[in-house]
Design a binder for these strands. Structure first.
Lengths: 158, 158
DNA sequence: GCCGGTATACTCGGATATATTATGTCCGAGTATATGTGG
DNA sequence: CCACATATACTCGGACATAATATATCCGAGTATACCGGC
C-alpha cells in the first residue's frame, strides 16, 4: 500500500505557489525547483486542476496557480485529487461468496464487521488529514523559506 | 493507494480459524469457504506465518491455525504482515533536491512539515487499527455464525 | 506615429510507452497415515 | 497378534508467469506576445 508520489509533489507545489503569489508559475519552473520530471509533474498537476485545487493558464506567461486560498486547501483534498475517493481497504464481501453459504441470509444486510473496522480506522486518517491545510504547512516552515523561494524563482525564471 | 486484498482474506481467515478451533485447517478448505484461488491464498497465509500470527503444519491433517489467541491479534498486525511497516506516504525530501538549493541548510535537519503532517494522520490510522482485535470481530459477528462455520467445515472436509 | 494582422514562442493537455507491483499458477519438499510383511 | 519398514496421499513452501497499476515521455491544441507592414 503505497501512496503515489504525486501527492508529495503536489503538496510541495501548493506551498511554493502560495509563496510565489498569484501569478501563474510554469511547470518547468516547479520541476526545476524540486528536480522532478517536467512532463510528468505537468500531468500530475492536471489532477489538481480537475479537482478545483489549482487553475491552469495556457500560453506565454501561463502556468499553474492555486484556485483557493491556502487555508482552504486541506491535505485530504490533495490526497483525494490523486488517489480518488475510494478507500484503501475494499470489502469484496467474500463472507457471502463461499461454498454452501446462502447470500440471502438477513445478517448480510448489515455491513461486514471487518469492513466496518477498517472503515473506522481509515476515517480517523481522513479526519486528521482534513484538519491540516496548506496554510498550516506554510506556518510550520522556516520564516526565511518564503523569501528564498521568491529569490530562486527570480533566478530560475531569468 | 489500494490495500492488498490479501488483508481482507487473512482477516476473514483469522475469524474462521478462531471459530473452527485449534486443529489445523487446510488452505483448500478456507479457499472453498470464500471462493478464493487456493494456491494464492496459501501464499497469502504464508505472510501471516512469517509474522508469527499463524502456525502452519505440513502433511495430512495439516493446515493453518492461529498462533495467538484472537484477543492478541490486531488488525494492525494483519495489515503489517501484508503491507509491511513502511508508511503509505514516503517523503523523498524533494525540498532539498532542487536547483539552486543548499542541502546543508540547518532547517533541513528538522523533518519536512508535509511529511510530519502525513505521518501524524497515518499514525491516527495505525492507532485505531491497533485497538481492534480478531476477538472484537468475533464479538461483532452474529451469534449463529460460529456454529454455521463449524457446520460448513464438517461438510467441506467430508 | 498608430493600428491591425500575422508569425512565433511558450504554455498546458491528453494519448502513448515503459517499469514496477500485485495477482495468480505450478511443481517440489516434507510428513502423518495406511498398508503389507516378517517375526 | 504385534512391530517395523515402506508406499502413499496429502499438506505447505517458494520459484515461476501474467495482469494491473504507477511512472515517464511525447506531440498536438491553444494563447499572449513580438514583430512587421500598411495607413
Amino acid at each position: 500500500m503505497r501512496m503515489s508520489e504525486n501527492v508529495e509533489w503536489s503538496a510541495h507545489c501548493c506551498v511554493t505557489l502560495a509563496w510565489l503569489g498569484d501569478d501563474p508559475v510554469p511547470v518547468g519552473v516547479l520541476a526545476r525547483f524540486f528536480d522532478l520530471p517536467r512532463a510528468y509533474l505537468n500531468k500530475s498537476l492536471q489532477a489538481m486542476v480537475r479537482h478545483g485545487l489549482m487553475r491552469s493558464v495556457s500560453g506565454p506567461r501561463g502556468g499553474f496557480r492555486l484556485a483557493l486560498p491556502p487555508g482552504r486547501i486541506t491535505l485530504m483534498d490533495i490526497v483525494t485529487a490523486h488517489e480518488g475517493r475510494e478507500e484503501a481497504f475494499r470489502c469484496t464481501e467474500i463472507r457471502q461468496r463461499g461454498e454452501g453459504i446462502d447470500p440471502s441470509l438477513p445478517e448480510f444486510r448489515t455491513p461486514c464487521a471487518i469492513s466496518a473496522a477498517m472503515r473506522k480506522a481509515e476515517l480517523a486518517w481522513r479526519r486528521d488529514l482534513a484538519t491540516q491545510t496548506v496554510a498550516d504547512l506554510i506556518a510550520a516552515a522556516p520564516p526565511a523559506a518564503a523569501e528564498r523561494a521568491r529569490e530562486r524563482y527570480r533566478l530560475l525564471r531569468g
